[in-house]
């Protein structure tokens, strides 16, 4: 057989057709959700800007007239929510949960929260940048939660460094490192990959810097800030699953500067065709 690749591609998928009515309806629903989120964010931004301006101008007045106390920022009461219960795991809740767990292992602070989730597969992803309290360089840490994993073979492969596989009570845990030779050193990503007996897979990884496009790295430290064993503790937290405590969602909603990795706003439409892809 002497087949052109292009022809073969077309032939292999030509019979696949999605349910277009269902696709349209689902896309509309998700699209409306994106619009609502944008509107909420722009409203929040406007309110925050007003508050900053108000506080700034009041403090300026206060400093000019030392006899008057400087005003403090108005506090907004937290929205009332149900005290208990669970909710669907989201990207922001994943990032919040990850932050909480990492803080129990290594003292420090987190920035650059981001994540994404899927309403079809119920997968969720959260990431953050962790700055250890000892002042050493940051680590980028990410965590995937993937419910409904029927099976997966856990065995170490040649490219995995310091790889271990352990099995316990129907669960499988694999830890390993990926090492990338780059200018100025080695980019290291340490990973803990847990498949629980209930089919929920939780994977966490931490780097020794920032992994950049085109296989480049900005190395900030010799080793990631978290060991494989510490990441194993993180993925072993029982709350990870398709539904999580509502409190975690509330924490996620309050994450400062959270970025939805799927929120492509199409801004690049009006800009250069080579604008930076998202993300």
């Amino acid at each position: 057989m002497n087949t052109q690749l292009s022809d073969l591609m077309h032939r292999d998928v030509q019979d696949l057709t999605p349910d277009l009515d269902a696709l349209t309806q689902a896309a509309r629903r998700r699209g409306l959700s994106i619009r609502r989120r944008r509107q909420a964010l722009s409203t929040l931004g406007a309110v925050a800007a007003v508050a900053v301006i108000a506080v700034g101008s009041t403090q300026l007045r206060g400093s000019a007239d030392s006899s008057r106390p400087a005003a403090t920022a108005p506090t907004t009461p937290a929205p009332t929510t149900q005290a208990s219960g669970t909710t669907r795991l989201s990207g922001e809740a994943t990032a919040a949960g990850l932050r909480d767990l990492l803080g129990e292992v290594v003292q420090g602070r987190a920035t650059s929260f981001a994540g994404q989730d899927s309403t079809v597969s119920y997968d969720s992803y959260g990431e953050l940048r962790w700055f250890p309290a000892d002042g050493s360089g940051f680590s980028d840490v990410g965590l995937n939660v993937q419910p409904g994993f029927e099976s997966r073979i856990y065995h170490c492969q040649a490219w995995q460094v310091a790889c271990t596989v352990t099995r316990s009570g129907g669960a499988k845990l694999m830890t390993f490192e990926e090492v990338t030779e780059v200018a100025g050193g080695k980019g290291i990503r340490v990973t803990a990959d847990l498949l629980r007996a209930d089919g929920v897979r939780v994977v966490a990884s931490a780097t020794n810097g920032a992994e950049l496009p085109a296989n480049k790295w900005h190395i900030t430290r010799a080793r990631p800030a978290f060991t494989a064993q510490e990441l194993a503790l993180v993925v072993g937290q029982s709350w990870w699953g398709p539904r999580i405590p509502a409190e975690l969602q509330r924490e996620g909603a309050a994450l400062p500067g959270y970025t939805d990795l799927d929120s492509d706003r199409g801004d690049w439409l009006d800009g250069s065709p080579t604008a930076k892809p998202t993300p």
């Binding site: 998928v13 509309r28 409306l32 899927s118 597969s121 799927d262 706003r265």
Partner: peptide, 27 residues
Amino acid sequence: YRTAVLLCGDHHLAEDLTQATYAKVFA
């Protein structure tokens, strides 16, 4: 959708990807 299948190699994920794409387009 067919492009998504070729990219994902997974029909389920391709369905999600196509839906997410048109959601952004709709937005």
